[in-house]
Amino acid sequence: MSAPLPSPLAFVPFVSVDHMMQLIHEIGIEEMLKGIATYVEDDFKRWELFDKTPRVASHSKEGVIELMPTSDGQTYGFKYVNGHPKNTKEGLQTVTAFGILSDVNTGYPILLSEMTVLTALRTAATSAMVAKHLAPEGTKTMAMIGNGAQSEFQALAMRVICGIENLRLYDIDPKATSKAQSNLTAFGFNITACDTAEDAIQGADIITTCTADKQYATILTDNMVGSGVHINAIGGDCPGKTELHKDILSRSDVFVEFPPQTRIEGEIQQMPEDFPVTEMWEVITGTKEGRTSANQITLFDGVGFATEDFSALRYVRDQLEKTGLFQQLDMLADPDDPRDLFGMVQRAKKTQEAA
């Protein structure tokens, strides 16, 4: 099934949660993760074109609501996203999101999409794309500490992009580990469910931390981390929320997306303002080096940045015409005379009365 995208002067293509799930199954989840990773990497290569700002956040004791805007000069995009760790106790998602792309020339939106599922995909795709540049050569084993909603996406992205075959899973809730193990069994991993974080990291080339509690936590202590590993630290993503002991940061080469945001939200919020970091776009473009030795500890302090959401939305929009998995959303006023919006409203009343 295929359909032409609607004119931006008429209707806006809307991708619902149901459409997104259909899109994943039509393309294949691993192919979709690879596709999004490619788009994210391509946009990092043109990093200097983008408007960049730390996300606009509204914090409460229960969580955070954020807007994440950016533009490459031709297309503008933003994501609305929340993070409420207590939600799972009430049967709700920790993270929900939606996003919009708009045409800079007219200001008209050209895509509205769910981003709860898409954020999970883009977070995993970004992690794996970064690991491709930073992880040890010949990486086969990953420890996944925190087996919540993001864990399976992370594992699959690392498998298809980095060649991960062995998974060592740990969560403080054994039910979460059982869930992840059950969901991933069909994908060909060798899976070990572990009783402690210390057990999980044994023999791991990549250590992914992805926990949800909004607190200064110490998921990994300094003595747990040996030389030569790549740490994919993606759970510390707002002020007051970390996962790693700061001594690990002191021993690591730390790579980030956008320093002004990461210094507020990431693991490096624990460190002095002049703590040295390398921006990933510099590694991807060859301006700076990533992994330089077998004994080096590389650490991706990933908090999620607006360009990655922009990339994911671009990817989805490029798939719509060939798949037809969208609906036309009537959200743009289109009066016959652009100056007569009031007249359009009045004529609608007459049409309703006549019906």
Rank of each mutant, 00 (worst) to 15 (best):
75 T>K: 06
283 V>L: 05
294 A>K: 13
231 I>G: 03
80 Y>M: 11
319 Q>R: 08
9 L>W: 11
135 A>H: 03
141 T>K: 13
43 D>F: 07
104 V>I: 04
204 A>I: 15
284 I>V: 15
60 S>Q: 08
163 G>K: 04
44 F>M: 14
321 E>H: 06
111 L>V: 09
177 T>M: 11
242 T>P: 04
200 A>Y: 07
102 S>H: 02
94 T>A: 08
159 R>N: 14
108 Y>Q: 10
281 W>Y: 15
240 G>R: 02
305 F>M: 11
136 P>L: 09
120 A>Q: 13
154 Q>V: 04
273 E>R: 12
286 G>V: 09
185 T>C: 00
122 R>F: 02
40 V>C: 10
113 S>Q: 02
131 A>N: 13
227 S>W: 00
274 D>G: 07
89 K>M: 11
192 T>C: 03
262 T>Q: 01
109 P>C: 08
286 G>H: 08
233 A>R: 00
320 L>F: 07
349 K>G: 08
234 I>D: 08
48 E>F: 12
315 Y>K: 01
320 L>V: 05
203 G>P: 05
301 D>S: 00
247 D>Q: 13
92 L>H: 10
158 M>I: 01
226 G>H: 11
285 T>Y: 05
315 Y>W: 13
74 Q>A: 12
147 N>Y: 10
251 R>E: 12
66 E>Y: 00
207 I>K: 04
77 G>C: 08
334 D>P: 01
63 G>A: 07
342 F>C: 01
149 A>R: 01
303 V>P: 04
166 N>Q: 13
229 V>M: 06
296 Q>C: 01
42 D>Q: 08
